[in-house]
Design a protein around this nucleic acid. Structure first.
Length: 403
RNA sequence: GUGAGAUUAGCUCAGUUGGUUAGAGCACUGGUUUGUGGUGCCGGGGGUCGCGGGUUCGAAUCCCGUAUCUCACCCCA
């Protein structure tokens, strides 16, 4: 038997209900915030991700579905959504056009990882990107938007906040941190030694308790911010508080992708295991420039759809539409005909076989129909149809032409 | 990529120190109460026990390999 590839799932039945409910809800809210849908290709030039996400990140260095296509191009399946949207933004020359441009997207992403709960090789993200607004109010709006989406879905969360500084204050801080860690290099774990080379800021959220003890005295990013970054961060906290969004400051919160600066945020859930981040994002003012566009401030976030599906409270399903059945063989053709016309306006479940009334009622109940409609020899003779409202338990016999 | 645990019917799971034809509940399906459901009664179909080797007179059960899932690390949404 041929099975689906490791870490790749079929989405159907109840999962699909949840999936579309999430996408519909998030889409609706994104539109209210002024965002427009964008669909970018699943396949992009590998260089795009090397330059945006960063060569040193795990995502690019070991998790990409990368191959040479028949035209000798080095391509890969997208491991995340932002890079493609930024590429499209620049390619359509919206950077030169100026103004603000807001996009949302959703679709599959691919990373060659070891699957576990909340982590798949093909997974789905819903994300938004805002270009051209440098005000921290935009960062706050975006956080409130995520909050709106999660609230609409009945999902509980904690919001963690940090500032990663800008090109002015981050590099000196990074150097300070590297120096600090180098002095204690023999005491920290292997992973941290490796991080020193790849992504030094990452040592801060190392889960090793020995490391954590050592890093208590490490220089703090929030104490090293320049005036502009510090003001923005203070402002952000103020705006969120005024809008009743509660948050916790997490000085160790580091986004995994290279392009983030200033505001970084993560929404986490305590109810889905170790893969607890359900949404993450932040500001990336330098990325458009990195990808050869005209410098444009930008901020965005992405949500992991599969992680959210487990947490969504689904609205109670209600009876809807009609169930049609025949009590006698002779009535089947008429039932089929009536079903066809009823389907122009309503959901109709049709049974092709003649059965007794009890069977039909059971089937109608299972189909979650609101009305059970049957035709037998009596109805056939009188030109009527028997209709029972399964919710109110009322029934009536009506003329075929009035049905 | 590392470590640990799982895998038996469509689903959730039993299965004794290795011993006849591998079970249950739910689901599915047929009959029935002679035209009234979601909650009656009686029956039926459905499993190369994840896959491949090995040990044994005999393997769902023991051993080895492998795939997948789960949990943790790592990473991230």
């Amino acid at each position: 038997m041929i099975k689906s590839l490791r870490g790749m799932n079929d989405i159907m039945s109840e999962d699909y209900q949840r999936f579309t409910h999430f996408i519909d809800t998030a889409t609706d809210i994104a539109k209210r915030y002024g965002y427009h849908f964008i669909e970018t290709p699943l396949l992009e030039e590998t260089a795009l991700f090397k330059r945006s996400v960063g060569d040193s990140s795990d995502i690019v260095s070991k998790e990409m579905y990368q191959f040479i296509d028949k035209g000798d191009n080095d391509v890969c399946l997208r491991p995340e959504g932002t890079a493609g949207v930024v590429r499209a933004f620049i390619e359509k020359k919206l950077d030169k056009a100026g103004g603000t441009h807001r996009f949302f997207y959703h679709g599959p992403m691919f990373r060659y990882e070891r699957p576990q709960k909340g982590r798949l090789r093909e997974f789905h993200q819903f994300g938004v990107e805002s270009f051209g607004v440098d005000s921290v109010y935009e960062d706050a709006s975006m956080i409130m938007m995520v909050s709106d989406i999660l609230n609409a879905l009945g999902i509980g969360y904690r919001l963690q906040l940090n500032s990663l500084g800008c090109s002015e204050c981050m590099p000196p801080y990074r150097q300070n941190l590297v120096n600090f860690v180098k002095n204690v290099e023999d005491k920290v774990c292997e992973d941290c030694v490796r991080r020193l080379e790849t992504n030094p800021i990452r040592v801060l959220d190392c889960k090793n308790s020995t490391c954590q003890t050592i890093y208590k005295d490490a220089p703090k990013l929030l104490n090293s911010l320049c005036k502009s970054c510090d003001d923005d961060f203070t402002n952000l906290k103020k705006i969120l508080s005024e809008n009743s969004i509660s948050y916790e400051i997490d000085t160790n919160l580091v986004r995994g992708l290279d392009y983030y600066s200033k505001t970084a945020f993560e929404f986490v859930s305590d109810n889905i295991g170790s893969q607890s981040a359900i949404a993450g994002g932040g500001r990336y003012d330098r990325l458009v420039e990195f990808l050869d566009g005209k410098a444009t401030p930008a901020v965005g976030f992405a949500m992991g759809v599969e992680r959210l599906l487990e947490l969504i409270e689904m609205p109670q399903s209600t009876r809807d539409g009609y169930y049609m059945g025949a009590l006698d063989e002779e009535a089947i053709d008429l039932v089929v005909k009536l079903t066809q016309s009823k389907r122009k306006t309503h959901k109709v479940t049709l049974d092709y076989k003649a059965k007794n009334l009890q069977k039909h009622l059971k089937a109608a109940d299972k189909a979650e129909a609101k009305f059970c409609c049957v035709i037998g020899s009596n109805e056939l003779k009188d030109g009527t149809i028997w209709v029972k409202n399964l919710e109110e338990k009322t029934e009536e016999i009506i003329k075929i032409e009035d049905f």
